[in-house]
Every structure is written in C-alpha cells, then in structure tokens.
C-alpha cells in the first residue's frame, strides 16, 4: 500500500561471519589511527630527556615513570590516594548533580525565574572555582568538607546552566504537538521536556565530570594529607620527581576513564539520536 516511490528500505543484512577477520583488521586500524598521536607524544617524552634536549632531572623519561607507577601501585600508596581522591570527587560530583538537575529543570520551566536568575548563574559559572579555594578553606577549614564543597561548587554550574538551557531550548513544535494531543502541563513536562533535555543535561554532566577532578587535584595540592593531588605535590617537594610524574600519569588515566564512562552513559540514554 505504501507507494512504490517510497519502497521500504530492505532490512539491514547482518555482517556475514566470513568477514570477521577483515573486521578485526578494520578495528585494529582504527585503534592504530586513534593512538598514533598519543604514541608520538610518549615517544617525544622518552627521547627528549635522553637526547639531552631537556634536563633529565626535571623531565624523567616515560619508561622510568612506569616502573615507579608500578611500585606505587604495589605498596598500596597509589590505591589509597586514588581511593581518597575518587571518594571526594565522586561525592562532590554526585551532590552537584542531585542538586543542579532538579533545580535547573525548575528554573528552566518557569521562564521568568530563568530570566531573573540567569545573569547571577553566569556570574557564578564564570568565577573560577579555584579563585574561591581560599574562601572555602577559610570558612570550612582544610578537611573533607571544604574539598567536597569546592568540587560541588565547580560541578553545579555547568550542570545547572545546561539543564536550564535544555529545558528552555526544547523544540516548541514538540510542545505544540503534545498540547494538541491533550496532554496536561505536568505530562508534557514528563513526556516531552524531560526526555528532550537529556542530551544537553549530559553535556553539562560531562563538563562537571572533568571539573570535579581538576578542582579536586588543585584543592589537594593546597592543603591535604592524602589524595593524588597531595601525592604529586608532596613528591615534588621531596624531590621524588619520578614519583611525581607517576602521580600525574595516574591522574590523567583516571580523568580519561571517568570521561569515557560518562560518554558511554550518555550514549545509552540518547541512543535515539541520529548522530550516533
């Protein structure tokens, strides 16, 4: 009955199993393409100190950093510091999301509230969280509370602002269609506004994810007795340069893994989008 002009596309054929080796090859190639820049960077890191381009005392070749990282992992220092840092970063991150998403939905849904509050939110967002670190330390001391609080602060704004703009940016034709279908305002919020906002909220969540680690590491460098930021800073002060680099590598791996987890979560929730 559908006209010939609009013939339904044939069902997508499943990849035949005979092609499996080729698929592995293709995956390998794509992995190679994506890691070539990183490998080049590590090679530069390795060669520059060895060739005497930089002082070897201050920039230790990468191959010497790895065994130190292994030692740190074996004697438990790496794990205990990572655990401390992750607990701080994740609790701050989680609190920020729990607060900012509902608040952002509320602010975005009420137009006047959004117009009233937006300038203030922009002001807060653009005040670097680290500039406020001394204030947090002054008021909350150097304990866990102040560290978690600064992470919360750094994570709240991107999530809040993205949620507000997500709600306000919902395609009005969706809302019109839902209204024409007789849906009540709360139902429109639940069935249209909320799902339409998910991609943009996730953008904010990802920004918050990287903020949480950046800010926490800095906070741990200023006043802490544990955590990866402390490890890096203390190593530098004790002139344990290799250990300092090992800590830095650990931090960057954790940041990368965290971001990948968030991207995977985002994909799961926005599988309907045409662009993935």
């Amino acid at each position: 009955m559908a006209s010939v002009l609009e013939a339904p596309p044939a069902a997508r054929p499943a990849a035949p199993p005979a092609r499996a080796p080729r698929r592995v090859l293709r995956l390998g190639l794509s992995f190679g393409r994506r890691s070539v820049a990183i490998l080049a960077f590590l090679a530069l890191w390795e060669i520059a100190p060895r060739a005497g381009l930089v002082d070897r005392t201050f920039l230790v070749p990468f191959s010497e950093v790895l065994p130190t990282l292994w030692d740190l992992a074996r004697d438990g220092q790496l794990w205990s510091n990572t655990q401390t840092s992750l607990a701080r970063a994740l609790s701050g991150f989680a609190i920020a999301i729990a607060v900012a998403v509902p608040l952002g939905l509320l602010i975005g849904w009420y137009r006047t509230l959004a117009e009233l509050l937006n300038p203030l939110l922009e002001l807060f967002r653009n005040t670097a969280a680290l500039a406020l670190l001394p204030v947090f330390v002054l008021i909350l001391g150097i304990g866990e509370t102040s560290k978690v609080s600064i992470v919360v602060y750094a994570c709240v704004w991107p999530v809040l602002l993205n949620t507000v703009s997500a709600v306000r940016g919902v395609d009005p034709t969706f809302v019109r269609a839902a209204r024409s279908l007789g849906l009540s305002a709360p139902r429109i919020f639940q069935k249209v506004v909320l799902p339409a906002s998910v991609p943009s909220i996730f953008t904010g969540v990802r920004m918050a994810g990287s903020n949480s680690i950046i800010v926490l590491i800095a906070a741990e460098m200023v006043g802490a007795k544990s955590g990866l930021g402390y490890l890096v800073n203390a190593s530098q002060q004790n002139f344990a340069i290799t250990q300092m680099y090992a800590g830095i590598v650990a931090i960057s791996v954790i940041g990368l893994v965290f971001n990948h987890l968030l991207v995977a979560l985002e994909r799961r929730f926005t599988r309907w989008r045409a662009d993935h």
């Binding site: 034709t173 969706f174 269609a177 069935k191 339409a196 926005t270 309907w272 989008r273």
Partner: peptide, 10 residues
C-alpha cells in the same frame, strides 16, 4: 503539523 513534530526519542 508541517514539521511532523514527532518525538525523536520515541
């Protein structure tokens, strides 16, 4: 509607 207004996540 002219723009279909289908919800893309459904």
């Amino acid at each position: 509607f002219q723009q279909y207004a289908l919800l893309p996540w459904r």
